[in-house]
Nucleic acid binder design. Structure first.
Lengths: 375, 375
DNA sequence: TTGAAAGCGCTAACAG
DNA sequence: CTGTTAGCGCTTTCAA
């Protein structure tokens, strides 16, 4: 790879401005304690020479890097067929940029990668890490903890160490599930089934819990295990589960699927069996994965989570600590299910937005039910 | 953000092993010219202390960073609802990892970001850049060129500078389009329409060219402008275009859509009009965007491009230069370790995989027609 | 306020 | 082969 041209140094700027390196350094770093005219001269020299500080030299002495690692551990393909990932990154990127931090992306796909990532983090090349670890048995979180780098997790981690639960940001999976199922109840459905996600992920477990919450409190119902089918968040899994479900409960009149992909598979089986949606069976998904959720037949009623905001919040939490949340957090219990039928995707820039809950070291973001045709 | 604990230095390792810093440095950097037993002792000390080189200190003297910037300039949402992006990154990440390089992600969404990125690149923080710039009028490529950083583009850039066309990797859009249209011809269709992508992107222009190539050479046909509708790569655009098309050519019997999203929109309009696919109208897409292409109704016949490989190749090109494409490059000196491309089906060991063309400074990757139900 | 000087941790000549 | 010695470009005491 060709060599980059050598760039002007502090020294060069100092010479040009007729001052010492120390003075230039002060000006470059905010200019406190430097007299106006001098500072002005320095700034001119900087501009003329096109000076940009050498980050390596700076880090060497300050021991800071103004860089954050984003670790995405996903041996499965799912993350890559999912806008989730991209939206998350976008949110993170925005926040980091606002704080003049760089984003170092670490993608892992197996055991070897884990040690590689752990070594990198332990190497002190970054000031902190944002980690997405979806599975309960993932060894990565432990390794990262040992690396001693400040870390915020995306999604509630399924483990805890002696320190307790680590900092994390998550969607209100349980609450969102409740909203979805209550919506179905409100539609007059009583034999409401749930196709779960991969239960080794906290998101799937939490959504199942939400479903159970509502079913347990519902007059006619109570918990009927035959209405719950375990699946894995994929369309194929959704198909399988739907067939299974139809086999044991032909009378089912509503399905809450753990995510949109699953709902899609269910939809297909329903269509193939000649069952009408939502007339015969109402279907609700989770994620509001676009364009899928809009383009399905019929368009999917689903629970939206604000992925980008989640990313932004993770970065903010890492950069500024828990205090970043002050002024926006809401005492728990105060969250009411929000319903919107207007597919309006905007979330206010800046701020942490409405009704983020902060239980202990975690931040929980609210969800919104998006009503389309399927339920 | 909390401070990271201080790590052991070269000095510490040297003391522990009873050698000089220089010797430790040699061992850490490959160990050439160090006697076996000594090297062994050093390695033990390294392990015991958990020593990891300080990259900042190293960069300061070597002027290399072992880091590459990935710039994704996409003011539109499209990239984010598209696995494209993620797959690209995964390919890049794999290759960079194999070369012990870090991936610094730069996402941009507007004018301000451009100058920010340009400054960063000009600042010499990375050894090179991989740039995705989709639009003809994008000012970013020019800025990046001025920054003087070695760069490889993703997708054929729509501009050229005094140096000629910059290095790039692209899918064989034109060839893929030809394959798609020939397939339709082979099916006996003669009134084959094309819904274009956003024509300010080279990919859309190239696909249109491929369509024209085949139509021009087809016996019955010749070019009929009424069969071409301009659109924008979105499902909504696809719907609009399909309606327009049906309005002026009710006799159309096949549609080649510029991408799968567009095809999806077309499919919906066709269904709504009671036209059967593929009996009445055959439809072919482009991208093989999963799970969409598989889950549509009917499943989509489409042109697949190997996105991940594209990313991998971009990184390889940047890291090793054009020689990366001539089979196994011979490392000069005894040092350069042979880079093992991970066991993977799409690209041969060290090579560029099957049938990659290299016209001038560009590399063109082949496509595959995936036959499903829609054509 | 400003400048002089001492390193941050590492690599790269150059000696030995 | 191995050790000694200069810095890389910057921040940061410490004096002036």
């Amino acid at each position: 790879m060709p060599e980059a041209v050598s760039r002007p140094t502090l020294e060069a700027v100092a010479t040009r401005a007729g001052v010492s390196r120390a003075t230039v350094s002060r000006v470059v770093n905010g200019g406190y304690g430097v007299r106006q005219p001098l500072a002005e001269r320095v700034r001119r020299a900087v501009a003329e020479l096109g000076y940009v500080p050498n980050q390596a030299a700076r880090s060497l002495v300050t021991k800071r890097h103004d860089a954050v690692a984003v670790v995405i551990a996903e041996p499965e393909v799912r993350v890559f067929t999912d806008p989730f990932f991209a939206l998350q990154l976008r949110g993170i990127s925005k926040e980091l940029t606002a704080h003049d931090n760089q984003l170092v992306l670490l993608l892992t796909e197996g055991r070897d990668d884990h040690t590689r990532v752990a070594r990198y983090l332990a190497g002190g090349h970054v000031d902190g890490a944002l980690v997405f670890s979806l599975h309960l048995d993932d060894p990565l979180p432990g390794l990262i903890h040992d690396a001693g780098v400040p870390t915020v997790f995306g999604g509630r981690p399924g483990w805890r160490d002696r320190t307790g639960t680590p900092m994390y940001v998550d969607t209100d999976n349980r609450g969102g599930a409740r909203t979805a199922v209550r919506h179905l109840v409100g539609l007059g459905r009583s034999r409401i089934a749930h196709i779960t996600g991969a239960l080794d992920q906290t998101s799937a477990a939490d959504r199942l819990d939400g479903y159970r919450d509502v079913m347990a409190e519902t007059a006619g119902g109570g918990l009927d295990p035959s209405l719950v089918v375990e699946s894995d968040f994929t369309p194929a899994g959704g198909e399988r589960a739907m067939r299974e479900l139809l086999g044991r409960r032909p009378d089912v009149d509503a399905v809450f699927a753990a995510n949109d992909l699953t709902a899609l598979g269910a939809l297909r089986v329903l269509r193939e069996r000649g069952l009408r949606v939502p007339e015969d069976v109402a279907v609700v998904g989770f994620d509001d994965m676009l364009p899928l959720a809009e383009q399905s037949d019929p368009p999917l009623t689903t629970v939206r989570q604000d992925i980008e905001r989640m990313g932004r919040l993770m970065a903010r939490l890492l950069l500024r600590g828990p205090s970043a949340l002050h002024g926006t957090s809401v005492p728990h219990g105060a969250s009411a299910p929000e319903v919107s039928s207007a597919p309006d995707r905007s979330s206010g820039p800046g701020g942490t937005g409405p009704a983020a809950r902060t239980p202990g070291p975690g931040v929980i973001l609210p969800t919104t039910l998006i009503r389309r045709a399927s339920a």
